[in-house]
């Protein structure tokens, strides 16, 4: 079962690699950041549910961003407050427990600094389907034993998370970012209550210029300070 899912995952990964286009790098810096627009991006990350490995594919699409210009006496500082919707499909496998496929939609709030560093918080909702890691059997009232196929459970899911990343577009003019994200998935109802799962995700974000182009609403804000 596990091998079958891993094969499918590999297949998806191969398929996705053919539709990945890199964005033409946007020349951007504190001096000329007018051209910077957050874009739709594909995220691929390795996930660890405590000790247990997995991965996550996500597509994030900006819907709004605010360019905040802070004018000080000697310098101008610019940050971007970006809002994204992120659609993510993830999997982790806990040996002798379950393999969990989860699909979630997240709302991201990202604070992109002109240095390239960004910080993000997110909250999401979704659905999870677990498959127990091992064969499962049912025993009928008459004592007959049957092997259960695809034994596991559906759960509703909510998540909260935070991440830090570096956007190579702003300083190095490369269309990708690297990030590290910590997330708590909460699966419910789990034996009447809920099951929290902490995840650590590390991965790569590639900007997509020709796929599902985003036209985020831009807002500007200028903060002047005499200090």
């Amino acid at each position: 079962m596990k091998q079958f899912f891993l094969s499918c995952l590999l297949l998806i990964l191969t398929g996705l690699s053919f539709s990945l286009y890199s964005q033409t790098p946007v020349r951007d810096s504190v001096a000329s950041t007018d051209a910077y627009v957050p874009t739709t991006a594909l995220k691929i990350g390795f996930v660890g549910a405590l000790l247990y490995p997995g991965c996550q594919f996500a597509l994030e699409r900006p819907y709004q961003y605010t360019e905040v210009t802070k004018q000080r006496q000697q310098k101008v500082k610019r940050i971007y407050k970006e809002r994204y919707i992120r659609y993510a499909l993830g999997i982790y496998s806990h040996y002798r427990y379950h393999t969990n496929f989860f699909l979630q939609c997240e709302n991201l709030q990202r604070r992109q600094k002109s240095t390239g560093w960004w910080f993000e918080s997110s909250e999401g909702v979704g659905v999870s389907r677990t498959f127990v890691n091992g064969p499962a059997y049912t025993v009928s009232d008459e004592g007959a034993i049957h092997k259960a196929t695809l034994a596991g459970n559906w759960y509703a899911l909510v998540s909260v998370g935070g991440s830090v990343g570096y956007n190579f577009n702003l300083k190095k003019h490369q269309p990708f970012s690297v990030y590290c994200k910590h997330q708590w998935l909460v699966l419910f109802p789990y034996n009447t209550l809920f099951l929290p799962r902490p995840l650590i995700e590390m991965g790569l974000t590639c900007s997509l210029s020709h796929f599902w182009q985003a036209h985020p609403v831009k807002k500007s804000k200028i903060i002047s300070s005499s200090k």
Partner: peptide, 25 residues
Amino acid sequence: GLLIAGCQKSSFTKNGQANDQFFLK
């Protein structure tokens, strides 16, 4: 993928030392 899945050993050890894991649904 099918080859790997087809090579899985049985979940139940019939002789020697067992370390079997399965579920009752």
